[in-house]
Design a protein around this nucleic acid. Structure first.
Lengths: 140, 140
DNA sequence: TTCTCTGCAAACGCTTTGCACGGAT
DNA sequence: ATCCGTGCAAAGCGTTTGCAGAGAA
């Protein structure tokens, strides 16, 4: 884990390591507050400023992907390989989508050079559908 | 234009009409401030609050699509038919992308019900590439 | 009159900035 | 001794809310 930081030229401080570990383990694409709440029990002196600093640094170095999916707060993805996201309008959870993407960074669009591809879907997630009795399901 | 508002159950006030007209004509996917700057010469008393109110109302009624593409401010798209977006990292301009999309709202992903599909690409737009001498172009 | 829309001012919440302390080299 | 990371406090900024006056029905 420490190697991942050093490989990007980032000094491995205690806070940076913990934040990176949390991001790598988390599937929830956390916001700064979510990181804060999760780590502040273990690191009581941790401040939001440090999380902002760290995540901005990680994003700059490509260790983490900021997801401007919700309008209120930034979410961060510890997985930087190409994939899409699904956000549930009811519970707000964000899921990774493994579907193959027909676009690639080798492509051009109207002469524009593609460097990043972001796909995101919104709707109702499986759990929320089950909870509401699958009222809008098409199953028999 | 007025019909478009009434069809959605929105009373066609002067401000609402002007904002809708501006959105329909604009290709720049404007932010609230961009709408404000463009219309405040014509309507000097126009306030940002009214633009926020109006755009939120339009979004609710499906007349306009909020684009959480940039992290700093919300952009709005007057075209609500399914299409993708390209945002240039240099000039910040947002372009519509006419490419066919392989996904549809009829699909499910891992049991999640898709209701909206958002694709956005980022990179360097045609004009910015030309401006910088196409330094990173693959042309001979 | 009554209800809705507008717009000023203030509040709100996420994020950034200023700055001082402490640890690492 | 110097440099860098941390974290408190305050500022910044886009957006929302409270509210009063104006306008439509």
């Amino acid at each position: 884990m420490q190697k991942a930081l050093e490989a990007k030229g980032i000094r491995p401080s205690y806070q940076r390591l913990k934040i990176l570990e949390y991001l790598a383990a988390s599937k929830e694409h956390p916001s700064v507050m979510m990181v804060y709440r999760s780590l502040s029990t273990e690191i009581p002196t941790l401040s939001r400023t440090t999380i902002y600093n760290t995540l901005n640094l990680f994003a700059e170095k490509g260790l983490v992907l900021p997801l401007p999916i919700t309008s209120d707060e930034m979410r961060y993805d510890g997985t930087t390989t190409q994939h899409h996201h699904f956000i549930c309008k009811e519970c707000g959870n964000i899921f990774d989508v493994g579907m193959a993407c027909p676009y690639s960074t080798a492509m051009e669009i109207d002469g524009h050079k593609i460097e990043e591809i972001h796909g995101h879907f919104s709707g109702t997630c499986r759990k929320c559908r089950e909870k509401s009795g699958r009222a809008d399901s098409s199953s028999s």
